[in-house]
Each structure stands twice: as structure tokens, then as C-alpha cells.
Design a protein around this nucleic acid. Structure first.
Lengths: 245, 245
DNA sequence: CTAATAGTGTCTTTAAGACAGTATAGA
DNA sequence: TCTATACTGTCTTAAAGACACTATTAG
């Protein structure tokens, strides 16, 4: 080794967001249409570079959420998915992106922000069935985000993050059915969910209008770890062994 | 916004490794003693900066493994834990580190590499019980790595990565007991493990010398996803809801 | 023989799934 | 009344755990 002090190479750091929500019982993801090169006109996950070297990663995620999708991140659940740093993933150079998963209750159509030509909720099925190609490696990031949500529904209270302040058990069931892509027995689901201590608590004796008997309303309970867990039915494809991420 | 084209701020990128192994039925982690500031003399996870801007993240992880611990990464299972980028985590400036989990079969004492004053296997209990303080946020990274290993034992064939090419069922049970910190019934464990299709396959009709009846040897099967899963007993603390990582 | 570990059979308990039946609203 | 949804009870089946028992080696 020579005497010249070696300095590590700088790298560009970005954040990307997988923002999931439920719209008419279907799982949707928030996508923006890119207004600039590369991939101009292509759909992509909201995201962008760190604004300055001292910006926190989660702060950057919340800022992009606001700038590109006009969403207030205060109410959203945010969770890191991992770092995506494959060599050819961005034609502009060496860019490493830290991806976050966000889960939002049903929300109105987003407005386009400043950096993006447009923002819209897209059914995840349209991306999975390749009806829609995404920019960069965002298809992979989205797949990882969905898979994370699927497994987290089992043992955490993440499902309640898809719902509003109060919700019925039937609405909660719709979350599980949409994210897992399965059908569940409402009667067994009801008993199971009510038997998990601290998951949901009755919210007054209010009700809600539907076709039949009004349902009780609930809100999130204090417990974030579900026990016993809500196991998803087999024949799905859980966590294989991959090195990245 | 002015006309001056804005360029994103560069950031220093590092990799850190949580390398777990089993030594005399105890879970150990590979630590190095830092030879330079900051945290000189303190124990830390192996890791370091990207060597050049075009180095792959996993390549950097394998390189550090070789340089700092003289370990050949070819046989090791490697899996990304996430990105650690909190603002004050490195006094040298803005450093974002991508952490990896590696799992190795029982290995001889490592030799010190070039960058580190020394490398040694340390029982994870010594770190958890705060008998040993680590540099940077490595205590948190280690905790996340252990938790990842714990949950991955349930539904993936990760446990076999702790074992050599061939192993007995009793050895495999020791992995689960050490990582989970529980005791398991050998007879139920035997039946359970053999009932998971593709997890382990008999390796010839060989044997091994112990105090009693020789055991059959097995090797890894083709299946990486375990079904039915090996659920760890309750009273542990699984996946809570955290935003980072 | 005894000691020690490998592997099997079987019972009990517990959770999951199927599904009939009751309750409470609107029209 | 009928319809639709909310909620309850019960049976069947499958998995988890406890543990007695047999098998095969070393000494």
C-alpha cells in the first residue's frame, strides 16, 4: 500500500417507495409517470435522490411521498425493504436505492406532483401480469414489497394499517383476501381475529350501513405482534433463499 | 428552481457482515478488533467501504470477508439485512452501510486479516448481555441479523447452512436449539424434520462415532422452502413493526 | 451385561377448517 | 314477510407435544 491516503468512492443514494392501498377490494400500488430521462414516460415507483448529504433516509422517503404524490406521510406505516445496488440498474451511473414499503388506507386519487408527469393508483395485478412495464428494477422492488406485506400480515398488525381509524371485521378480512389473493371463511376469520389479544378493540357501539345487519366498529389495539398468528393458506410462495435483498 | 442543474449529493457506502456459526453448540459471531480510528480497539463487525464505484455490493461483502477474516465466501450463505443510514452513526461523515447476514458451518479459529488487528468468534450471548460493546450501530445490526436467522429457520432450509456437507439429525437439532435458545424433543424433531419433503436427504448409509448408536448422515435436499414449517415455540419475540431496517 | 444415542409408536391436547344455525338490521 | 350480513356453536380433521418403547452401537 502506498502512502497516499485512500478515500472511498462516492455513490449516489436514492430512495424508492412501494405504497400499497386497497381500492374496491383490490390491491393497488402508487405509480408515477416519469417526466425526465431515463425511462421518460415509463411508469415507476415514487422516489428520488437524497436532497442533501445530511438528509435522513426516512425523511427523504416522506419528502418524495409529498413531492411526487401529494400524500401526507404522517399517517402511513413505513418500513424498509432493503438496498438495491446492482451495477446496471441506473444508466446515469452508480446509484444505490433504499426501498421502503408504505401502507395506506383507502385514499382518493392522488394529484400529480412537481417532478412527475402524473401519479395514479394501479392494480398490482396489472404489473404482475406484465400489462405494464416499470422503469429501472422497480418491478423487482414492487414484488419484494408485496411479498413483505404478505408475510407481515401473518404475525404483525400491518393489516390494520390498510384500514381507516375505525373499521369492521369484514373490512379487515378484505385486506387479507386482497393481499394474499385468497378467500377466507368470514365466520372462522371473525373468531380467529377476535381471539388475538390486543389486535383490535371495539370502538364504541357504533355501526355502519350495508345491506344487512350493521357491524361493530373496531380500532387498532396496542399489540403489534399477533399471537396466535394468522397463517396464510398453503400453495403460496413464501420466503425463498436469496442474497439480495 | 434556478437554471443551475442540480446534482445529487454523494454519499459514502459501506458493507458490514453478520457472520454466524456454531461452535460447541453455542451461537457465535465473527468480530474484528478495529485497528484504526474511529472506535480503535473496539470490537466491530467485519466490513468496510466499497473499493471502487463499480464494485457490486455482494462482491464487496465477499471481499471484506476475505480481507478481514481470511474466510472464503464461496461456501457461505449470504443474505442482505438492509441499509443502515442514521445520521450520527459514523463520526467520519455520512456513511450508509448495507448489512449482510452470512451463515457458516463450524470453522477453525480465523486469522487476523490486514485491516483488522484481530478476528475472533465471540459467543453472541457476550454481546447481548453487554459484556462486550461494539462500534458504530453494530450492536443493532447484529441483533437484526440474529432475529433474521431465527425467523428464517422456521420456513427455509437456512439451518442446513450451519452444518457441513453431511450432518446428522442431532446436529441439525443443535442448530435450532442454539439459534432459538430453546430445547426441543429429539424424537419429535426427528419425525418432523424427516416429514418435510426435500429438506434433507440420506447421504449413503454412512455413520458417525458417538457414545451410542451411530446416526444416519444426511445432506441438504433440493427444497429451500420448508413445508410444513418448523415453528419455534412461543414466548419469543418475533417481527415487531419498525421502519428501519 | 450396561451405557448411550438413534429411531418408532401412540396417546393427548390444541388449533384449523367446514358449516349449520341464530341475531339484527333494511326494504 | 324476505334478504343480506353479523355473529355463535359444534363437529371433524390435522398438526404439535409428551413420552414409552425398540434398535444398534461401544465398552
Amino acid at each position: 500500500m502506498p502512502d497516499t491516503p485512500w478515500t472511498p468512492p462516492p455513490v449516489l443514494l436514492a430512495v424508492d417507495l412501494v405504497i400499497l392501498t386497497l381500492r374496491s377490494a383490490q390491491l393497488h400500488v402508487l405509480l408515477v409517470e416519469r417526466g425526465i430521462e431515463p425511462y421518460r414516460g415509463r411508469h415507476a415507483l415514487p422516489g428520488g435522490f437524497l436532497s442533501h448529504a445530511d438528509e435522513d433516509l426516512t425523511a427523504a422517503a416522506r419528502r418524495e411521498l409529498r413531492e411526487e404524490a401529494n400524500l401526507d406521510a404522517a399517517r402511513l406505516h413505513l418500513e424498509q425493504l432493503g438496498a438495491y445496488g446492482a451495477l446496471g440498474r441506473d444508466p446515469r451511473g452508480r446509484v444505490v436505492s433504499v426501498a421502503y414499503l408504505a401502507v395506506a388506507p383507502g385514499l382518493p386519487e392522488p394529484e400529480a406532483g412537481t417532478d412527475a408527469a402524473g401519479a395514479a393508483w394501479v392494480p398490482v395485478h396489472d404489473v404482475e401480469a406484465r400489462h405494464l412495464e416499470l422503469a429501472f428494477d422497480h418491478r423487482q422492488i414492487l414484488a419484494d414489497g408485496i411479498e413483505r406485506a404478505r408475510t407481515k400480515l401473518e404475525k404483525s398488525s400491518l393489516a390494520a394499517a390498510f384500514c381507516g381509524e375505525t373499521f369492521t371485521i369484514a373490512e379487515l378480512q378484505q385486506v387479507y383476501e386482497a393481499v394474499w389473493g385468497t378467500r377466507l371463511d368470514p365466520r372462522n376469520f371473525y373468531r380467529k381475529v377476535r381471539g388475538i389479544p390486543g389486535f383490535i378493540v371495539p370502538a364504541g357501539s357504533q355501526r355502519r350501513t350495508t345491506g344487512g345487519r350493521p357491524a361493530q366498529l373496531f380500532r387498532r389495539g396496542p399489540q403489534t405482534v399477533l399471537f396466535p398468528p394468522l397463517n396464510r393458506p398453503p400453495s403460496q410462495t413464501p420466503t425463498p433463499l436469496r442474497t439480495d435483498p
